[in-house]
Design a protein around this nucleic acid. Structure first.
Length: 329
DNA sequence: AAAGAGAACAACCGCAGTACT
DNA sequence: AAGTACTGCGGTTGTTCTCTT
């Protein structure tokens, strides 16, 4: 079929934008209460740029809500966490960092964070430690973990889309909820059951999770990762009960709210490796992989956690949440 | 002070998804 | 249903800046 080029390159300016061009673009968008069609914008505004170039300049540098300046430690930590979940989905990551653009985050990752992880012996692709032969100690995240990540990334993207649309005053937010079926799905019964318990209906009756999940209060260790929909920023234990193997933890979301989870520390094996031969949702050995590592990052501290001995990193984090169920209260 | 290397940042390119006709 | 246009995204490249020798 072949696509027509986005613009005729002849006579169009390329390279860095001048302050004059910036001013013209900003004035035009302000005057017209939005950019309208990017393709026709340069002509109407009197710019010798292609529409694509204008859009990039606006979205990455000229938008009034963009936060300039160096990234804070908190932002860097969040980026590392989100990258562990979402991979190179810069737009989805950026949607969780107000005022930051995907391009900016991508550059930060490629120039700083990625190298930092490599220096520490962490594979920046999957956030797992390198072994001595250069491979990673875990082949990949578990199927369940990947499944969770897919759900979560899709949800983040959907919310990012809505966020963009609502912030773009040239595109009224009309009927978007109808078009965005993923969000509807996420908040539907299907999403609800998945969020609450990804092995829905497979829980053995003798598991402590069974009762709770049936009451809609409980999820597996995988399920807690779905709560990264609230972007867990860290956690602290607030109470524990050795006898009952129950522990309470507070997770901080990026919105600042505290979320209390009840953690069951036993019987995971029975539940997650039970009768479900489809395996699509069950946990496996690598349940301690990316998601767990991310959840265990001591977010509220400085970046020194990235300088810890990686052996400790690999062993301690892999054990922490193993055989545990985490239930939002 | 000058040259080279590497880092950081800005911009471009092409693909893919979606909307529109 | 198919073709086309529009937009967003991620990868890559080009340019500028900073540091080292």
């Amino acid at each position: 079929m072949g696509r027509t080029p986005c613009c005729d390159k002849k006579g169009l300016k390329r390279g860095p934008w001048t302050p004059d061009e910036d001013e013209i673009l900003v004035n035009y968008i302000n005057k017209n209460k939005g950019h309208g069609s990017w393709r026709t914008l340069p002509h109407h505004a009197g710019l010798l740029r292609c529409g694509k170039s204008c859009r990039l300049r606006w979205t990455n540098y000229l938008r009034p809500d963009i936060k300039r300046g160096p990234f804070t430690d908190e932002e860097e930590k969040l980026i590392i966490q989100l990258h562990g979940m979402l991979g190179n989905r810069w737009a989805a990551i950026a949607s969780q960092l107000p005022g930051r653009t995907d391009n900016e985050i991508k550059n930060l990752w490629n120039t700083h964070l990625r190298k930092r992880l490599i220096r520490m012996g962490v594979n920046p692709q999957n956030h797992e430690p390198f072994t001595s032969d250069g491979s990673t100690s875990k082949a990949s995240a578990s199927i369940a973990t990947r499944h969770m990540a897919q759900w979560e990334s899709a949800r983040l993207e959907a919310e990012a889309r809505l966020s963009r649309e609502s912030s773009n005053f040239s595109t009224p937010l009309l009927d978007k909820s109808d078009s965005d079926y993923f969000l509807r799905l996420w908040y539907s019964e299907v999403g609800e059951s998945f969020r609450k318990f990804p092995t829905a209906g497979k829980t053995p009756s003798d598991s402590p999770i069974s009762e709770a999940s049936s009451s809609g209060k409980c999820g597996s260790i995988s399920a807690v990762t779905t709560e990264i929909g609230h972007c867990l920023m860290g956690s602290s234990t607030i109470a524990g009960n050795q006898d009952e193997d129950i522990e309470y933890k507070v997770f901080k979301s990026i919105t600042g709210e505290d979320m209390v989870y009840r953690i069951y520390k036993s019987n995971t094996e029975n539940v997650t490796r039970g009768s479900d031969s489809s395996s699509s949702n069950k946990l496996d050995d690598s349940s301690e992989s990316a998601m767990d590592l991310l959840l265990d990052y001591p977010i509220n501290n400085d970046m020194s956690f990235l300088e810890d001995d990686m052996n400790d990193y690999a062993t301690s984090t892999s054990a922490k949440l193993e055989n545990a169920f985490i239930c939002p209260l």
